[in-house]
Design a protein around this nucleic acid. Sequence first.
DNA 1: GCGACAG
DNA 2: ATCTTGTCGC
Length: 265
Amino acid sequence: MRQPRTPRPDLEPDADLEREEMEAMQREIAAAAIFEDDHDVAVGSLSNPLEAASSDRDRPEPPLVAGVDQSFLLESERALSAVVVMQAGEVVERVHAVTPLEIPYIPGLLAFREGGPILAALEGLSTEPDLFLFDGSGRIHFRQAGIATHIGVVLDVPSVGIAKSLLCGEPRGDVDDLPAGTTVPIDANSRVDAPAGTVLGYAVQTRQYDSPDRAINPLYVSPGHRVGPETAADGALELATTYKLPEPIRLADAYADEAKRTLEE
DNA sequence: GCGACAG
DNA sequence: ATCTTGTCGC
């Protein structure tokens, strides 16, 4: 259904670039990005378990979904990138890589700090995920080139950004105490390099408490590459089966911490 | 100058 | 992100 992939190694995040060059590269990334559905992932059954039915041959292989997250060994100035690949709700592969950290965290330039470590970890995959979830923004970014978009374009793979807080853009409505399953559009504002009216992504409430005492904040989900905003939001809701975070990301987060502790001991 | 700012 | 124990509540 899809055309062969066209990776863009020329747009790999380079921590040695000047700030202006990084921003220029992000504009190129945004121009190359596709913020609409262009993949073969059947969103709608991402977490469904395979049934022990009779005709396995009639049913297409459930899509492989990768969750990617990082932890840091600040003492040794290193980043640990962890990847967990799931299929039909089951973990099918886990890989991680440890690389030196080259630059500090700068809002808007996250991909230049964590992109190298991520690409190093993804090199170790033996499976070929159909969709990648990254911890951070995609199109919800000053230049529409968050880390999910950057990595997605470089590898030319479908990707989605899952952030716990909002970098920029304006929620179309109140995002407090939203009921589970609710989404609120995030519109582009003056701080974003996008036409007014552009829907950058969605605030997505995957879980919520029953009692009005405490409240869970929504996730901020946006297209990385080759995925539309609605599909990104629906996928996040579908993959968050038990916790606030979509399962692949949650498990990558836990794995990144676990592998880090192993190195510290 | 002031404010805003993923992980 | 990371530094960190206990503690409130289902």
